[in-house]
Nucleic acid binder design. Structure first.
Lengths: 356, 356
DNA sequence: GGCACCTACTAAACCGGTTCAAAGGACGGG
DNA sequence: CCCGTCCTTTGAACCGGTTTAGTAGGTGCC
C-alpha cells in the first residue's frame, strides 16, 4: 500500500487513510456510506479525521466523480445586478430560491462577460434562462455544454423546457378594459424594445423588431384589442425610453401627456413604467383616474401600494420561478411547457375618460 | 501513447487528443494557453474539437486542478427566499452582484438544510455571511472548510473580514430626532429578537438576549438617546411580532396605538416595519405626522415613495454588498473591517407632537 | 467437515482535466 | 561544423475524491 498521505501539507482523505492504515475507500465510505463500515472503525476514522483537521471530502473532488454539483444556474440577459432592481425579477428569483432551498440545491447567479465567460464555466447541473434567449454568448455556452435548461418568458426552443404566460391575452385584456370604459385616445409606455440605445416614439417597424418576445406579444395584444374596438392602431403612440425602470416610465408618460389632444389613458408594459407614469401625472397636475387612467402589467407588490392603487395585469412571478426550477428537477414528471394564467386586476387607477 | 479516447461515449479532451494523435496537454493548451501552440496546430485542435462535438474542458475537472471555482458564496440566516422579500437585502444582493459581474464571478446563493448541508458542499472560493453569525450549521460548515469569509452586520470574528454600520449611532440619531421635536411618549417596533416564536411586549431581559447584534445595538442606541434626554427607557414599550415584515409592523403599531396615553411617535427598527406602522396609523384614522410621527431604519426605496415620505436612517445597502465582495477579492488591499456611514434622512413622516 | 453465504474492507480504475520538467528540432552565431 | 537558444510538444504526475469488483475471514447449515 503506497498511498500518498499528506502531500504538500494539505490534509486529504489519503492523509487520514494513511494515519489509520486503512484504504482511502474506507475513509470515503465513513462519510458517504457509514452503514458499510463497522461502527468501531467508522468512529475511529471520524475521530482521526477530526484530530487531523480533516473537514470531510472536498466537494469539488466528490462532485467530479459523481458528476453532479447540486446547483441550479440562473442566467439573465441584462447584467444580473439589474434583476435586483426589477421587482418582478426579484419575485421570480424568490420562487426559484424556494425550490432550491427545498431541494437542498445552491442557486448560482450567472452573469459576467457578454461572451458568456461565466456561463461557460459555472458549476451547475442545469440552467434557468430568465431572459428572451438573446443569441449572445451566455445561452450559447449553456447549449454547447449540453446542460439542461428552461427558457422563461422567451421563445420555445428545442430540447428546452418552457415557462411563460399569455402575454398577448394579458395585454389585450388591459387594453380592452380601457376601451370598455370609453377611452379612445390611448398611449403606450414601452420598455426598451431594441438594444440600440434609441429613445422616442416607436413606429410599426420597430415594434415588429422588438427583441423580446414578451414585448412583441404585449404590443400585439394591445393592437388586437384596439383594432377589435374599431380604432386604428397607428393612431396610438408608443413611447420608448432608456433605461428600463420607473424614470423611463415617467419620461415616456410626460411625452405622451404633452400631446394634443392629450391621451386619456395609458397602457404601460410593466408596473414599473406605470408607477413612473403615475409620477408624471402628478408632475402634470393631472388626477388619476379623473383626468387620466393608467394600467400596468405584472402586479408587483408596489402596484397595490401605489396612490391610487394600480390597475394592472397580474402574472404569477413567484410561481413562474417555482415551475422553472421544478421543470429542471423533474424533467419528465410533467409537461415541459407551462403557460401560467394572467388576470386583469382592476384597482383605482382606471376609470371613465374625463367628460371633456 | 495509450490514452483512452472515448470512454463510455463521452467526448473528452482525450477523445480529441487521440483523434489528432497529439497529447492531452496539447489539447488543454489549445484552450488555456493558445499562445503556446503553433497557430496551425491550435486551429487543427479547435477544428477537430468542434467536429467531435467537444465543447471545451469540463469546468469541474479544470477547477479541481486549479483549485479555484470563480464563484462567491452568500449565506443568509433565514431561508434565502426570505431575502428576496426584504428590500434592504435585495439592495445588498445587488451590490454583491455588481462586483461579481465585474470580476466575472458567479454568485452562489446558499441556503438549504439547517445543518448547512448545502454550505458544506457548495462550490465557492469564499463566502459572504449576510447574517448575524448564528452558530448554526451553515457558518460552521464554512469555517470547517477553511473558506475565507466576511461577516456583514454581525460580530467581528477571528480570521474573517467584517462590514457593517454603526447601528447604535444610527438608532440614537433617530430617537434624538423625535425627542428634539418634543416627543415624550415613544414606542418601538422591533423585528423578531429571539428565535422562539414569541410575540408581545419585550422586556429588558429579552432585549438583552436579542439574537442579532444589529437588533441589540439599535435598541441600545434608542435607549441611550432616550436616557440622555432624561426619560426612563423602561417607560418605552417595545413590540415584537412575527414574521418579519410589513404586516408585523402594522400589528406592532396597532398594539402601541391602542395604549393610553397613546404614543406620539414610533421608532421602527426597519423601514418595512415603519411602512406597516403607516398602514396602522391609517387604520386608526391618525394622520402622520400630525397625530403620530414615525421614523424608520434603512432608507429603502419604498421609504421615499411612501405617503407621507418616511423619515428614516439611511444606510448604504448596496455599498455594503460591494465592500463585502471586494473584501474577499482583495483580502489585504484594504483594512479588513469596514464600518459604513449612517445618516438620518428627515422627510415627511415626523413632526412635533400634537398640541394635546 | 465441507460448502454456500455474509460482512467488512481493499485494490485499482476512474472522473476529466492542468501543469511542469524535459525532450526534440529548428535556427542563428561564431 | 558545433553549440547555445528558442519554440513546440509531450509524458507523467497530480488534483482529491468515488466506485466497482473482488478478497479475506467468519457464520450457518446439513
Amino acid at each position: 500500500m503506497e498511498t500518498d498521505g499528506r502531500r504538500g501539507g494539505r490534509v486529504t482523505l489519503a492523509t487520514v487513510a494513511d494515519a489509520l492504515g486503512v484504504s482511502r475507500a474506507t475513509v470515503s465510505n465513513a462519510y458517504n456510506h457509514p452503514e458499510r463500515l463497522s461502527a468501531a472503525l467508522r468512529d475511529r476514522v471520524l475521530g482521526t479525521a477530526r484530530e487531523l483537521g480533516y473537514s470531510g471530502p472536498h466537494p469539488l473532488a466528490a462532485t467530479l466523480s459523481r458528476g453532479r454539483v447540486n446547483a441550479l444556474g440562473l442566467v439573465y440577459d441584462d447584467p444580473m445586478s439589474f434583476a435586483f432592481s426589477d421587482p418582478a425579477a426579484v419575485l421570480f428569483l424568490q420562487g426559484v430560491s424556494e425550490v432550491c432551498e427545498h431541494e437542498d440545491l445552491a442557486l448560482v447567479l450567472i452573469s459576467g462577460g457578454p461572451a458568456g465567460a461565466v456561463a461557460r464555466v459555472a458549476l451547475v447541473d442545469a440552467v434557468i434562462c430568465y431572459c428572451d434567449v438573446p443569441i449572445d454568448g451566455k445561452l450559447a455556452a449553456i447549449v454547447d455544454r449540453g446542460l439542461p435548461f428552461v427558457v422563461v418568458d422567451g421563445p420555445r426552443l428545442p430540447n428546452a423546457g418552457h415557462v411563460g404566460i399569455d402575454d398577448r391575452r394579458g395585454a389585450a385584456s388591459a387594453a380592452r378594459h380601457l376601451l370598455d370604459l370609453g377611452h379612445t385616445r390611448l398611449g403606450v409606455l414601452a420598455m426598451p424594445l431594441v438594444d440600440d440605445g434609441w429613445e422616442g416614439t416607436v413606429d410599426q417597424d420597430r415594434q415588429d423588431r422588438a427583441r423580446y418576445r414578451a414585448s412583441r406579444e404585449r404590443l400585439i395584444g394591445y393592437r388586437e384589442a384596439v383594432e377589435a374596438a374599431g380604432h386604428r392602431w397607428s393612431a396610438v403612440p408608443v413611447e420608448e425610453r432608456l433605461p428600463y425602470g420607473r424614470d423611463a416610465g415617467r419620461r415616456e408618460a410626460a411625452a405622451l401627456l404633452a400631446r394634443r389632444p392629450r391621451p386619456t389613458a395609458l397602457l404601460a408594459m410593466s408596473d414599473e413604467l406605470a408607477l413612473g407614469a403615475l409620477a408624471a401625472a402628478a408632475d402634470a397636475g393631472l388626477s388619476v383616474p379623473g383626468d387620466l387612467s393608467i394600467v400596468g402589467f405584472d402586479d408587483v407588490p408596489a402596484a397595490a401600494d401605489a396612490h391610487p392603487a394600480l390597475t394592472t395585469v397580474r402574472q404569477p412571478h413567484r410561481e413562474k420561478g417555482r415551475r422553472a426550477a421544478e421543470l429542471l428537477l423533474r424533467p419528465h414528471a410533467t409537461a415541459d411547457e407551462h403557460r401560467l394564467p394572467v388576470e386583469l386586476v382592476v384597482r383605482a387607477s382606471t376609470g371613465p375618460p374625463p367628460r371633456r
